[in-house]
Amino acid sequence: MIEVRNLSKHFGGKVAVDQLSFTVKKGEVLGFLGPNGAGKSTTMRMITGYLPMTGGSVSIGGADVVDDELTAKSRIGYLPENAPLYNDMSVEGFLRFAAELRQVPASQIKAAVDKAVETCFLQSVRQQSIDTLSKGYRHRTCLAQSIIHDPDVLILDEPTDGLDPNQKHEARELIRRMGKDKAIIFSTHILEEVDAACSRAIIIDQGRIVADGTPDELKQQAAHAGVVVARLRGLAGTGIKQELERLSECKSLEVSDSGEDIICARVDPAKGKTSEDLSSAIFRMAVDKNLTVEELRIEEGRLDDVFRQVTQSDTATKA
């Protein structure tokens, strides 16, 4: 649905987006991650046709954003950063305005407004003037605007920014629901959102893609992913350590706590062995030696570890 090829943007001599390429298919929700100033908003603005691009191309369902601008734009719903709105309109008036500009046929405008109001939980403020709305409602009004014509493609720039935890949850649920039959790109710097709503995530830094994959694939890239954490009681710490090192599944281990009859260690699986092999070996060893297993788990990589690893270059060069 969305095809981005070698997309670049230079502001003066500064490169904001550098040869970005990716595609988003229907039914896919793409999380767009990156530190502030990485080029997320710039990229989204080029995809929506707002910013002219320096190089590359974007096509929306086959329509080029530059050559076939209006067709491409009519397929996109866009929620800009900070949810800009016309303060002098009512919520309903604004949604009607958006529906008309989005070329919803006159006979269907009322139904479209009703549906958007319902989807974004705006019933209670429907007739209210926009300048009296709280931030959460403003955001939802702008979101309602982006889905009013039931577009195939949704581009959401920080859709959960400024919402309270309940509203954030609702927004994520909404994105996930809509993602079933649309192609969605949304940017965020809240990493749990990627887990909660995305089927795929891209991390960009300094205008380049530094990681691309499903949330689970990305987590695998974390330095600590796959480490087995074991907390065993029953023998002196040093004794248990020796037993652990003796396991063929163990490559190396790092003791974080050791006492008279306890040890807590992080064990790396040996080459060719999975984390699961290692944890069951540890469990069997504990049973043999009559040890109490207080904790035994495989550490999942954490997205923010991955995020920090791949975007470190930025902070490193600044420091």
Partner: peptide, 14 residues
């Protein structure tokens, strides 16, 4: 100033 230009110019309108 309000950023609504971004809204307007990303709608299918020349």
């Amino acid at each position: 100033r309000l950023g609504t230009m971004e809204l307007m110019l990303t709608m299918p309108i020349a």
